[in-house]
Simulated assay, not measured.
Amino acid sequence: MTVSVEPPASLTAPLDAFIAHLASEKRHSPRTCDSYLRDLLRLVQWLCQDQQNQWQTVSNHDLRRYVARLSRDGLSGRSIARHLSAIRRFYQYLLRERLASDNPALDIRAPKSARRLPKVADVDQLTHLLDASPDDPLETRDLCMFELMYSSGLRLSELASLDLDSVDLQGGEVRVMGKGGKERILPVGRKARSAVQAWLPLRAGLAPDTEQALFVSQRGDRLSHRSIQSRLNRWGLAKGADQKLHPHLLRHSFASHMLESSGDLRAVQELLGHADIATTQVYTHLDFQHLARVYDQSHPRARRHRYHGQHRKQDSAGE
């Protein structure tokens, strides 16, 4: 257990002056100042335990040991990067005030955090949600949006920017403008085409002739990003989803399910509009998780403990 040590004024006085500098000269908010103070006080406590009481004697090696300690304490790479940013800024102030001769944190980088895998929805759950019947014209629109998202792996921004002429129902294609102004043509599945056909007559009763947006609000103007997010969440709640639905969940699910079925990483990259295949490779980890589940459920040696448990139950019943 770490024991808190009362820090000497030689460490706390410059720190107090720095926080006052942030508040008065830099006009930072109280919340930002508290964040700097909290991170730097953690360093102060570590220095006291390391029997150091002067900022100017802290070395690059000392701070590398401190970063290693933060990592052992379970801080993420992002949190450690925030700590280092606070330390670098503090030493910039100490240099300005001639209370230090160098900035020992300049070339120290935080360890990389493990990349978070995107959440995906189960195929059966998505099928259940997308097969649900809409109860009114706006739900018909919502179902059309969600079918298109999942059918073609669209980003939220791509879906919101679709115009009437973006979808070619006869050709089964949708034209989207992706990141960096890059246009791509994507296939549209049968279910999504049927959903568009059901929505278009209802849309005509809401939107004026001058409105080109494919998806419009009850007022007849282009549907906003926030409204799309809200309606997707509402659909999930109304139709019994077992997790919160959001636009990226549908895009991630599209990518993962495509990769599970095809194994074609390059094709999924093209469909998603990723400039770098490394961005798409995160889905190979998801695919492996799927394969691991199949293995655990199917391989007789993987199911050994389960079989033994069943035998034990049968033996106990026989006794």
Rank of each mutant, 00 (worst) to 15 (best):
A238M: 08
I19F: 06
M258H: 15
F90M: 08
S85Y: 01
I277G: 03
T127R: 15
L249C: 07
R306N: 08
Q289F: 04
D315N: 11
T279Q: 12
A302D: 08
I185K: 09
S10V: 03
P300A: 00
Y93Q: 05
W55A: 00
I87V: 14
M258I: 10
A275L: 00
S161G: 09
S71C: 06
R72S: 08
P208K: 11
D242M: 07
D50C: 12
R231H: 14
F90S: 12
L162Q: 10
L15Y: 09
R89V: 10
G309Q: 13
Q243C: 09
P111G: 06
T140E: 13
A17H: 06
Y283A: 03
R222V: 02
M1I: 07
Q218V: 12
A278C: 07
H311S: 13
H83V: 01
E173Q: 13
R42V: 02
T140P: 07
R293G: 08
Q56T: 05
L143R: 15
S35D: 11
S76C: 00
S59Y: 04
L143V: 05
C33Y: 06
G171M: 10
E319K: 12
L130Q: 03
I80K: 05
S29K: 02
T57S: 14
Q310S: 13
K119N: 14
A198M: 09
E260Q: 14
L223N: 04
V123P: 10
L154P: 11
G153M: 10
I228Q: 07
P208S: 07
K244G: 04
V123R: 08
L237R: 15
H225E: 11
G189H: 11
D242P: 09
L94I: 09
D39G: 01
A86T: 01
Q281L: 02
D163F: 03
L232S: 05
D136T: 00
E147Q: 11
V188R: 07
L232T: 07
L271R: 01
Q52A: 06
L245C: 05
S256P: 04
D287A: 15
R301P: 03
M177A: 04
F215N: 01
L271H: 04
Q56K: 10
S10D: 09
L291K: 11
T284L: 07
Q297T: 03
D124K: 12
R109W: 03
E173L: 13
D135A: 15
L200F: 05
A192I: 06
V268I: 13
A204W: 00
L75I: 00
D107W: 13
D287M: 10
G180K: 11
K119W: 01
D142R: 10
Q243I: 09
A238L: 11
A81S: 14
S79D: 02
L162P: 04
Q92Y: 08
S253V: 06
Q269L: 08
L126G: 04
A198W: 09
K244S: 13
R193M: 12
S161V: 00
R304G: 05
L232V: 10
